[in-house]
């Protein structure tokens, strides 16, 4: 299904991805960022696919009912605590964005870098938009949802990526695949698990303690986290 595009990219996030602080941006870079943002919003063809599936807890293992899919790790279990079901979702900007970034890399590395950052921001914004949409729908049904939790967060293995892609049949639904090494392609894509419950839940996003880059994380050094 086609996902709606936001009207604007969050520029501050783009600068953050570029490693720049907003008050030190020069006009040239500002122009490049605005041009790239416009172009990327124009050519991106974001697509989304999600399903809601019941959860099963059995002897300490957390599983998607009627499937062989096990959600491994303490962090996802904590996140989905109190949830009867969860939403498995996948969203992608499409192969055209990868192709465009590749072409830019051969032409001008700066444009490529800005495109790459804009694309990262866009996919994040779209994933968030979809999450908000789901939350609205669920509110009407008197249900509550947790935040998004993706493979690779905390101790939820990245290997889940391939399994999610196959379970959701995303290759057919939205053109999203995973490599043998569980990397999503097109690159600018996100899969996520969202808990659903009949009572208010907040989920528990994985903290820094399990994060792979905790030692070199820029945000941590500044006493912040990457979670807004």
């Amino acid at each position: 299904m086609v996902a709606e595009k936001p009207d604007q990219l969050n520029r501050e996030d783009v600068y953050r991805y570029l490693g720049c602080s907003v008050n030190q941006i020069d006009d040239t870079l500002r122009d490049v960022v605005s041009r790239c943002s416009r172009e990327i919003l124009y050519i991106a063809q974001p697509r989304v696919h999600w399903i809601e599936v019941p959860l099963k807890r059995d002897n300490g293992t957390l599983q998607i009912q009627n499937t062989s899919l096990v959600l491994e790790g303490k962090d996802i279990a904590a996140h989905l605590q109190g949830c009867e079901s969860c939403i498995l979702s996948a969203v992608t900007l499409g192969a055209q964005i990868d192709a465009a970034i590749r072409a830019k890399e051969a032409d001008n590395m700066l444009t490529a870098l800005v495109w790459d950052s804009c694309a990262s921001v866009l996919i994040e914004q779209i994933a968030q938009q979809i999450w908000e949409q789901i939350r609205e729908n669920k509110t009407v049904e008197k249900q509550y949802i947790t935040g998004r939790f993706s493979p690779g967060y905390g101790d939820l293995p990245l290997e889940l990526q391939g399994k999610l892609v196959s379970l959701l049949d995303t290759a057919r639904k939205i053109g999203l695949t995973a490599t043998a090494d569980n990397i999503l392609i097109p690159k600018k894509s996100i899969t996520a698990i969202i808990g659903v419950a009949r009572q208010p839940v907040v989920g528990k996003l994985a903290g820094c303690e399990h994060c792979a880059i905790q030692k070199i994380c820029k945000y941590r050094k500044e006493g912040k986290t990457c979670v807004q």
Binding site: A171, T177, T179, I185
Partner: peptide, 13 residues
Amino acid sequence: GPIGQLLEPTGTL
């Protein structure tokens, strides 16, 4: 049907 992995240059196959 498709193999399920994207070919180079988009993918790695």
